[in-house]
């Protein structure tokens, strides 16, 4: 077990940021901590790193209690902060070298690791640039390089793709996968469900400081009633027709609003076919039709009654 958190409680005055939070992370996992803003993801990370005091509970990393003085544990942890935390007055190369030297005493080994980190995040041609001269995406990649240059066994990435363009985001996600393949255990916090689905081997969903669900993406989706969602645009229906749709097999929710129809189905076969057959039978004209499988947002919505980005 790489991380074991039991019963963690963290309060900010009257606000409970973490409410008896549990977490277990196995070696080699890419664990996604998913939750809306303010759900407690960053607080959990800061407690894990012993930056924040907590009111109750225990945190063990690599099988040992984590404290502010646990330097041996810290040596094997890499952290990529939510905000880009680098020196504006140092170049890309110097920044990575500085952070690497906090962990690695051997100068030559440090130099070698810095080179590898620069190549890893593909910043070779920017090595002499100051961070202020880099684009947002490149700065994020520098931020990651500073966190992983010392080759940690555990890498914690706290929303590393916030405000990053799609191309840079893909590069970052690709890099995280590569790190994992090289043997690092990853904890990845985000409120972007697509990213979590893309790279995480297991997902923990947080809300109001509590773990509300955990499992693989498929396991989480299997937990909810919704199994298929069909949207139809530019459609005109009367109340009788809507009622008939509600009575179709496997339908559990129908929303009709301004010529837009959304029908939610529980598990079942030929849901789309059944719906289209009925509309044909009624001779109802319609525009585009979409059929979607449930997303993690649907999981979150069904469990909490609100969306991930609300």
């Amino acid at each position: 077990m790489i991380i074991q958190i039991d019963n963690l409680v963290k309060r900010y005055k009257s606000l409970i940021a973490l409410d008896h939070f549990h977490l277990e992370v196995e070696e080699g996992e890419i664990l996604g901590l998913l939750g809306p803003n303010g759900s407690g993801k960053t607080t959990a990370i800061n407690c894990m790193l012993s930056l924040l005091k907590y009111d109750k509970g225990s945190i063990r990393i690599f099988g040992r209690d984590m404290t502010a003085e646990s330097y041996d544990i810290k040596r094997n942890i890499g952290i990529v902060m939510q905000n880009v935390a680098v020196f504006d007055t140092l170049s890309v190369e110097e920044n990575i070298a500085y952070f690497c030297s906090l962990y690695i005493k051997d100068r030559w080994l440090c130099k070698q690791y810095v080179e590898e980190a620069i190549r890893f995040v593909e910043l070779q041609e920017y090595r002499k640039f100051r961070p202020s001269k880099l684009s947002g995406g490149l700065r994020r990649r520098l931020n990651i390089a500073c966190g992983i240059a010392h080759k940690p066994k555990l890498v914690i990435l706290d929303e590393p793709t916030v405000a990053v363009d799609p191309q840079s985001r893909n590069k970052i996600l690709e890099g995280i996968r590569k790190l994992n393949q090289q043997g690092a255990t990853i904890i990845y916090t985000t409120h972007y469900m697509e990213e979590v689905e893309q790279i995480c081997t297991r997902i923990v969903i947080l809300d109001k400081g509590k773990q509300i669900a955990e499992g693989t993406a498929e396991q989480l989706k299997a937990m909810i009633t919704l199994k298929e969602k069909i949207d139809i645009e530019q459609i005109a229906l009367d109340e009788r027709q809507l009622q008939a749709i509600r009575e179709l097999a496997n339908v559990f929710d129908v929303v009709y609003n301004q010529s837009h129809l959304q029908v939610k189905f529980t598990k079942g076969k030929q849901n789309l076919m059944n719906l289209l057959d009925y509309l044909k039978q009624e001779d109802v004209p319609f525009g585009k039709v979409y059929s979607q499988l449930p997303t993690l947002n649907d999981v979150f919505l069904e469990i909490t009654g609100k969306g991930l980005r609300d």
């Binding site: 800061n46 790193l49 012993s50 930056l51 502010a68 330097y71 041996d72 810290k74 040596r75 942890i77 952290i79 902060m81 905000n83 880009v84 935390a85 680098v86 020196f87 952070f99 906090l102 962990y103 500073c146 966190g147």
Partner: peptide
């Protein structure tokens, strides 16, 4: 400012390192 975890992100980054 760059050493104190409660003062800056750089401070926090330094504080989580094994450098005393």
């Amino acid at each position: 400012q760059k050493v104190q975890a409660n003062q800056s992100d750089l401070g926090a980054r330094n504080a989580v390192s094994p450098f005393s």
